[in-house]
């Protein structure tokens, strides 16, 4: 090939590669959606360290969202692979991820982790026990961990620690959320923690650290307070 032709071809190839890269990196996300999972209290976004309207100071707030399934007109269009997301309010980016599908009108997921995951040995990523969300004295994931101070808590210095987990009946603590939603670019999953805090038994259940009826009750209150909406 003559030298002058090679000079011409190289920029063309660079252009083509750039175009190809952009088609892959730029266009695909536009076809999908982006999840934004976060927590709120009475409509106000909360992060770790915030003082909630109830006077509660939230020091730790982590929860699992898992097993995402997307539907269109009742038909499943996508079941997310390795669908485990540990949302940690200390790191807001943990609640953000892309979904490579569009054209859905319904979304389904778990608050927590399913029982099979809890009995199937060691996992990595967000399920790695180094994340501090796996009990060591009794097998099972802590599906929701909320720690902090409440003026109502009879715990030491008003402390509370709600470690909500349990995968075996009658104290299962995963909660299935199913919600219609338009598949526009941004899907918000908002966990309002205050309805649960308003019904927490601050006299005797300010510490919940094992699978129990109280853990199941509090998880259900949280699950019912999840709102899914598109932006």
């Amino acid at each position: 090939m003559p030298r002058n032709e090679r000079v011409l071809i190289l920029p063309t190839m660079n252009y083509l590669f750039s175009l190809l890269f952009c088609m892959t990196a730029c266009l695909l996300p536009a076809q999908g959606a982006r999840i934004h999972a976060h927590a709120s209290c009475r409509g106000r976004i909360v992060v770790t360290g915030d003082t909630l309207p109830l006077g509660i100071v939230l020091q730790t707030a982590r929860f699992y969202l898992s097993d995402f399934i997307f539907y269109r007109q009742g038909q499943e269009v996508l079941r997310e692979n390795n669908s485990y997301h540990l949302v940690d309010l200390e790191f807001p980016e943990s609640g953000e991820w892309a979904i490579h599908t569009s054209g859905f009108d319904e979304i389904s997921f778990l608050l927590g982790t399913d029982s099979l995951t809890n009995v199937s040995g060691a996992y990595g990523g967000d399920l790695d026990p180094v994340k501090g969300m796996y009990w060591t004295w009794n097998s099972g994931y802590i599906n929701v961990k909320l720690e902090g101070f409440s003026p109502q808590s009879r715990g030491r210095n008003g402390e509370f620690a709600l470690h909500l987990g349990g995968y075996m009946p009658p104290f299962q603590t995963d909660y299935r959320v199913q919600s219609g939603v338009t598949s526009s670019g941004h899907i918000h999953i908002e966990l309002d923690v205050c309805p649960m805090f308003e019904q927490t038994d601050w006299n005797s259940h300010f510490n919940v650290m094992s699978p129990s009826a109280e853990a199941a009750r509090l998880t259900e209150l949280l699950g019912r307070s999840i709102r899914v909406y598109a932006e």
Binding site: V119, S120, A122, T136, N138, S139
Partner: peptide, 12 residues
């Protein structure tokens, strides 16, 4: 029987 899987036993 607190631990349900050999993988997870060492955590205890």
């Amino acid at each position: 029987g607190a631990v349900n899987h050999l993988d997870m036993q060492a955590l205890a």
